[in-house]
Amino acid sequence: MDERLRYNDFSGFLAARFPYKVQKISLNAGFTCPNRDGSKGYGGCTYCNNQTFNPAYCRTEKSVSQQLEEGKSFFARKYPEMKYLAYFQAYTNTYAGLEKLKRMYEEALQVPDVVGLVIGTRPDCMPDALLDYLETLNRRTFLLVEYGIESTDDRTLERINRGHTFACTCDAVRRTAERGICVGGHVILGLPGEGREELILQAERLSDLPLTTLKLHQLQLIKGTRMAHEYALCPADFHLYSADEYIELVIDYIEHLRPDLVLERFISQSPRELLLAPDWGLKNHEFTEKVRRRLRERDSWQGKYWKK
């Protein structure tokens, strides 16, 4: 853990693995999800609008290589020596036949200066045959498989239409880690019905899993989503945190996390034209600095109350 920051940060994690600066480039490879196409359900997760995290160059009519080259051009102006991780981000990036997935991953790795892959997916979309391939891939390049966990409470998972249980998450994370692959997780803090007590329990449950990295995001209400409609009908079901409230929640949460978990980020930034609430007007680095300052003020740190 970085004693100055009082938590394990993602840039430190990357610096320990690469002798140069590394930047993720988001990709939209044209996948869908099993709870969108009818395999598990329809409509997707109630909070989801993938437009919220797709940069302008992420368009499905462009090949993986083209998206990566355009992403590289964007970053190389400022950091000409930068290397890149191809981040298969939009929707479920293991939800296709094995040969198609291999072609896409290998295409990304053929792009100059791409030094690894980050693959975002769901816990119910990781067959053993794909893990066999990813295990061999992991031996020759950097690989991080990032699972959308969102919640550890099955009632919440059902309410937000995830289409899987927390037991499914545990199984996928453990099977992936057993192959020697770095495993990431993504959770949303502030989902309906989940207050501080429930989230402290969540942190403790996640700490029992062999996760390498974890992303925390605040609940955001996005235009056009089912959750935005639910909020309009019954706002009392939701607690939308102020920035200061959420900072306190984040610190309470990470105090109960395993000390060696790498924390990639604390918030999400949706485009303002899509965001209904909460709108804090803070960039990611500004919010992170506020968390660091408050950690020092509270004399707190990641794992302060973690119980082995």
Rank of each mutant, 00 (worst) to 15 (best):
R4V: 14
K62L: 15
R155K: 13
A172D: 09
R77F: 03
E158H: 06
R298Y: 12
Y231Q: 08
A108L: 08
R17C: 07
Q51S: 14
Y133Q: 07
M1I: 11
R36V: 15
Y42D: 03
R293F: 10
A96D: 15
T141D: 10
T92Q: 03
R226C: 04
S242R: 11
G44V: 07
V22M: 02
E198P: 01
L130R: 02
F166G: 06
L157F: 10
Q110E: 15
L191V: 11
E204H: 01
E3R: 07
G30M: 08
C45F: 05
K308N: 13
Y47F: 15
C33Q: 07
H285V: 11
V173G: 06
V22Q: 03
N28A: 12
T152V: 15
S207I: 11
V118K: 00
G120C: 14
R122A: 09
I247C: 07
T52L: 01
V187C: 12
I200C: 04
H217I: 09
A16Q: 15
V22N: 03
E286Q: 15
L134Y: 07
A15F: 01
V183F: 04
E106Y: 03
R294V: 10
Y246R: 04
T94A: 02
L261G: 06
V145R: 01
Y7S: 06
D113F: 01
G190Y: 02
T169G: 00
T165I: 04
I160Y: 01
P123Y: 09
L216P: 01
I25W: 00
L233V: 13
I160D: 03
L130I: 12
D208P: 00
E197R: 07
L261H: 04
K215I: 11
T94G: 06
F166T: 06
C182F: 15
K307D: 13
L199Q: 14
N49A: 07
T176E: 08
C45H: 05
F10P: 04
K78F: 14
V64K: 02
R175L: 05
G97H: 12
R296C: 05
Y253V: 12
N138I: 06
L189H: 09
C234M: 06
Y20L: 01
Y91V: 05
Y47D: 09
T176F: 04
K102Q: 15
K83R: 15
G281N: 09
D153Y: 02
S65I: 11
N284P: 07
N28I: 06
L249A: 06
G281C: 08
E204K: 14
S11E: 14
I247K: 10
A56Q: 10
S300L: 05
Y95A: 10
W280P: 10
V291W: 04
S39D: 12
L282I: 08
I222F: 03
A177W: 07
F142H: 12
L27M: 12
K304F: 10
L221C: 10
R272L: 14
E81I: 01
T165G: 02
R293W: 08
L131C: 07
C58F: 05
D279N: 11
I200G: 04
T288F: 00
D113P: 02
L109P: 08
G195P: 02
G190M: 10
C58N: 13
A228P: 10
L214Y: 09
Y95R: 02
Q66N: 08
P210V: 10
Y147N: 07
D124A: 04
A228Q: 12
A129F: 03
R226H: 09
P19I: 08
